[in-house]
Design a protein around this nucleic acid. Sequence first.
RNA 1: GGAGGCGUGGUGUAGCUGGCCUAACAUACGUGCCUGUCACGCACGAGAUCGCGGGUUCAAAUCCCGUCGCCUCCGCCA
Length: 621
Amino acid sequence: MAATDGEKLTNAISPVGISGYEGQKRTCYCGELNEKDAGSRVVLMGWVNRQRDLGELIFIDLRDRTGMVQVVTDHNRSPESFRIAKKVRSEYVLCVSGTVVRRAPGTENPGSPTGMIEVMADDIKVFNRAKTPPFVIRDEAEPDEGLRMRYRYLDLRRLPMLRNLELRHKATLAIRNYLSQNGFWEVETPTMTKSTPEGARDYLVPSRLDPGRFFALAQSPQLFKQLLMVSGVDKYFQLARCYRDEDLRADRQPEFTQIDIEVSFSDEDQLFAVIEGMMKHLWKEVLDVEIDLPFPRMTWNEAMERYGSDKPDTRFGMEIHDITGLVQESGFMVFRNTVESQGTVRALCAPGCAGMSRQELDSLVAQAKEFGAAGLIHLAYLPGGEVKSPVRKHLSDEEVAGIASVTGAREGDLVLIVAGPFEVAVTALGRIRLSLGDKLGLIPEGKYKFLWITEFPLLEKNEEDSRWQAAHHPFTSPVARHAHLLESEDESDKALIRARAYDLVLNGVELASGSVRIHERELQDKMFRLLDLSVEQAEEKFGFLLEAFEYGAPPHCGIAFGLDRLVMLMAGVGSIREVIAFPKTTKATCLLTGAPSQVSPEQLEELGLLRKADKQQKTCK
RNA sequence: GGAGGCGUGGUGUAGCUGGCCUAACAUACGUGCCUGUCACGCACGAGAUCGCGGGUUCAAAUCCCGUCGCCUCCGCCA
């Protein structure tokens, strides 16, 4: 029990005697010792991972951030250190002096990197004792994540977590080095800035000196980096903390880090080359993995057509196929009606899945519906040539054969079909593709498939008020061939305009996002008109940027990486919390510090958030 | 805003079609023994009113309702 431990710690007469740190120098780290060190005297400092007391012989696994090494004491050799070792417990903090020796034949531990040697202790000092930790600090242990976050400092003691922190450090260092060598300057921008009306919800900071007014924590340095281009910084980058008050996910935290980059007098091709070089450098430096350049490029349209996603995982195939032409005169009315109402019919082939059970099929249908599809049709191409499907009787033999031919389905395969509006049909199948790919084990481990997605739609319709809004942000250039559509009278043309916006995708994860910016005032004004923004509104929201652009803005473009996601993928873990030292829960709280917390009425009053009267009322309660 | 999963000694789990549960197992913890362990071993011991609140019942860890916490997903994230 915690209380008992506390008593033990404070009341027990120390049998070991805690030593202060008196300048004794550590000579090396535990995990770095090997056979070459045999014979040398060392001074180690670290935590007790485990003590094994064999009576007249005691082993201690001493741990620091590099790893572990076995310390031995026997009572003949050093009675004093033996006496101390006897009382040592897990997580005690020790200074061990001794000699590295090769282990006797037959006592080596091939399972440990330092298993060929051990340290014969002739002096052990205890810097500190430790309560029994709330969970075992061992690499493979996986306690409840809430508990890990509550005691994050203990969770981070686990070597895999320390590895993640180290990896993150190496990654950011490699990025800084690479960008600096390529002429980029790191410039800091304000985190306390002006609230932006569009985009994510802001975290607000009240101004004491200007009661009733608020700063917003920056959602990104977007506007500042464009101002820096106007300033002639030319090549900018920043590892910037960003804050967004939106619901959390495994890959989303309320505060996160962007690798923010912007360059002047460059187009996509030049920027892509710099970024590709950065990724190559990063993977080589940190993971010692060679990656191939250049990265393939795919337009947004093609990505949606083939993978039903704007961040396709191209580590495996199972692509989506268009069978609209095949079924436009189908006897199955769902298909025919879809085609007549300008919809589309798409299919994908799940290899070897013809034998799927009723239950598994039902779950696929449920998934498809969850992803927005009206339904999901399946055709099982059974071994022997028979085709089983709830709609088999509505389909002609030609249709059945045609679908097999287009999707590449063979005997034993299952074809899944969704009919509906383009984006609905392909995204539903795209999600099914991912979930099946995972289930069928089609996704290879250890592969890095980078991919540029280009020509995103410039605008998208806001579902709530059906207004057009910028898909990326309002300063994104349209592609030249669509510039004329900006002024088109035809409303449906707006959906067709493509932007000079791009994402870098890795293994199905959006790693980075950017665009070529508008740097001419007239084009920008057209853009605002398109977004139904009046001159006044634009002025109110981004006036300072528009004004800056009137003093000579260079053409510029940029990109921003989610550093947390990048490191997550490099570390091979499933959540960015694993690569963030002190993450927040899915309710955006910090279990370690207890933030967010209440503040005193005095504090609120000082900030102008509480009137004196309210305060008195509150205190009276 | 919505859907789902989980919550039982310090930790990880079992039990959860109600009663034989006076809650099991492993590990950690405490004491003792042990000179080659490395998930050390052996013996003994201590440790949980089953997240919290309410209900149903003769009887609730178990069923129902609510609530809190953690996680996953949808919406959301210019």
